[in-house]
Amino acid sequence: MLKPLFDQNVNLVAWIKQEEHIFDTDMNWIAFISRGYVWSANTGNWLGPIQNLLVLDQKGRPVLWNPEGSVNGTSRPSRPSRASRVSRPSKPSRPSRPSRPSRPSRPSGGWTDLTFEQWMSQ
């Protein structure tokens, strides 16, 4: 089941298949999840950790979130060893557009300084 991911401005920017993959709003595969971290599907580069439905940047600041979880930053995570590439998943059907959630409180440590596009192109 896909769940929506929002940026700090409460814009729908991606969908997540928990503990597996992240897709953009056009259902293009953009990232995979391995060992608690998010990796670029395009380059294989480490993008940051993930905690349930909260995606963090390499500094431990929130990038993407889902209203089912809390939005909190963490201390800077250690760089993990490179993950093995995974096979491209089949393109999922686009879910119905979710209702826009309320903006969460400012997380401890603040939001990432990166836009979604900048985070994805690391």
Results as ranks from 00 to 15, higher is better:
3 K>V: 09
27 M>S: 13
57 D>F: 08
36 G>H: 02
54 L>R: 12
50 I>D: 09
82 R>G: 05
2 L>M: 06
11 N>T: 03
16 I>M: 14
39 W>H: 12
39 W>E: 12
68 E>D: 15
78 S>P: 00
10 V>T: 05
72 N>D: 12
109 G>A: 06
100 R>C: 04
54 L>V: 04
37 Y>D: 15
114 L>S: 10
86 V>K: 05
76 R>S: 12
70 S>G: 13
26 D>G: 08
77 P>Q: 12
3 K>D: 04
47 L>F: 05
105 S>I: 02
106 R>F: 01
56 L>H: 11
105 S>T: 07
53 L>Q: 12
92 P>R: 12
121 S>D: 15
14 A>C: 00
97 R>C: 00
97 R>P: 00
70 S>D: 11
109 G>Q: 07
33 I>W: 10
99 S>A: 11
14 A>I: 00
63 V>R: 10
76 R>V: 15
9 N>D: 10
96 S>N: 13
45 N>I: 02
91 K>W: 00
51 Q>K: 14
64 L>N: 09
74 T>P: 01
21 H>Q: 09
91 K>Q: 13
21 H>N: 14
71 V>N: 03
104 P>A: 07
120 M>H: 00
88 R>E: 12
54 L>W: 12
36 G>Y: 08
11 N>K: 05
30 I>V: 15
6 F>V: 01
51 Q>M: 11
45 N>M: 08
31 A>M: 08
72 N>C: 12
73 G>T: 06
53 L>M: 11
69 G>A: 09
15 W>P: 03
118 Q>G: 02
110 G>K: 03
83 A>K: 01
90 S>I: 08
102 S>Q: 11
86 V>Q: 07
68 E>R: 15
